[in-house]
Design a protein around this nucleic acid. Structure first.
Lengths: 213, 213
DNA sequence: GACTGTGAAGCCATTCACAGCT
DNA sequence: AGCTGTGAATGGCTTCACAGTC
């Protein structure tokens, strides 16, 4: 199979299209055009068509796309035709919030374990989950074949936790905060840095404002 | 003043450089080269120099950059030479996590109000904050001159809350979840979509893996 | 007539490579 | 000699515009 280089921005948008299509489907929409998708998610129609074209021809000229079919295709592309088990490390406020985030389950992500090494947090219940000590991580990861880990731990602990996860077969990490993780080539890492996001806002409020943009 | 178009990626990296420089400064490092910054944050040296060059000449040829000075310049560029007050709307798990996130305060962001319209949450204490009813938002925003709002509310409520914030003079919004907000031109909006992040991981785990990348 | 799929063009960001200082 | 600052080259993503299909 060919592996054309696909922009990450395309994957990001595909994820957004996918959820938009689910909504349209729930509303009973049967057919949709690239322009309508574009309108719904805030991009250009050409962008929508180009993004989809990386993966095949899903539409009918003169007509548009079948909502249900296209929805299924996007789920397939994103690897969401199977459920994924996920572990969360760090049971602080952020870890707790992530462990209970409903949006994950809606898309087929199942949190099967929340871990911490803080004795005051171990044993705590987070909805139907219990906070386990880190020592229990290998067992849970093995039992559920977990490939995805979410790190909601202080920066200093991140590398250590990443190592533990990778040793146990986790292949994808979502981290929070400004950490540069050292992981093997095959491990996928993406980072969400909330301070960066706020600072983009302040840059726009102050710098751009003062330069008349 | 000239307003050269500055890539958003540059701002993102600047925020990362800035915190890296703070760390170096705390460690007593006086002078640093673009290569050392690059190494520390995981980009190329040319990229570091290019990013900085958008805003001036901060270094000394043959020597490098003075850590303290460059740190101050980056803070200035990002608009962080003044503190910013922030309100959080939504006192669920995510809103609570964001309200207590220490990283914000470290960078000069002060949460001055957490709001919800759920009677079971109003009055709840989140560390030194109290959850207020939405009706109290105008007063708090006005009193503290709040320009930044964080929306941690369900998608259906987002637009309504955004309108309320904008009406009261908030000019920058950080949202969570897949919402396309309709706001006036001058309002800056950035979105963090956690499901998208996880789906980028699954795409890489499944699609790329099966196409031998 | 309407809308997709796509090569070509345009635009933007990153990397290169070297002149310019210290 | 070492490192910055930057024009030029490259690479990559987005938009354009139209041929192809229903």
């Amino acid at each position: 199979m060919k592996a054309p280089k696909i922009p990450e921005a395309t994957i990001t948008r595909l994820s957004v299209y996918s959820r938009f299509l689910e909504r349209m489907d729930r509303q009973g929409v049967v057919t949709i055009s690239s322009g309508e998708i574009a309108e719904g998610v805030g991009v250009s129609p050409a962008q929508v068509r180009k993004d989809l074209a990386y993966f095949g021809e899903f539409g009918t000229r003169g007509v548009g796309y079948n909502v249900k079919d296209l929805m299924r295709y996007t789920l397939k592309i994103l690897g969401l035709t199977r459920p994924w088990t996920v572990v969360v490390v760090g049971a602080g406020n952020l870890g707790t919030a992530l462990s209970t985030y409903k949006g994950f389950r809606d898309r087929g992500f199942y949190i099967v374990g929340v871990f911490d090494n803080d004795l005051t947090k171990i044993g705590k219940r987070i909805q139907d989950l219990e906070v386990y000590p880190l020592e229990k991580l290998p067992e849970i990861v093995a039992r559920h074949g977990v490939k995805i880990g979410i790190l909601a731990v202080p920066g200093e602990a991140a590398q250590e936790v990443a190592d533990l996860l990778v040793q146990n077969g986790v292949e994808a990490l979502l981290t929070f905060g400004a950490v540069v993780l050292n992981v093997p080539e095959h491990v996928v890492v993406r980072n969400v840095d909330l301070s960066v996001k706020l600072e983009i806002l302040t840059f726009n409020l102050s710098f751009r404002a003062s330069h008349g943009l």
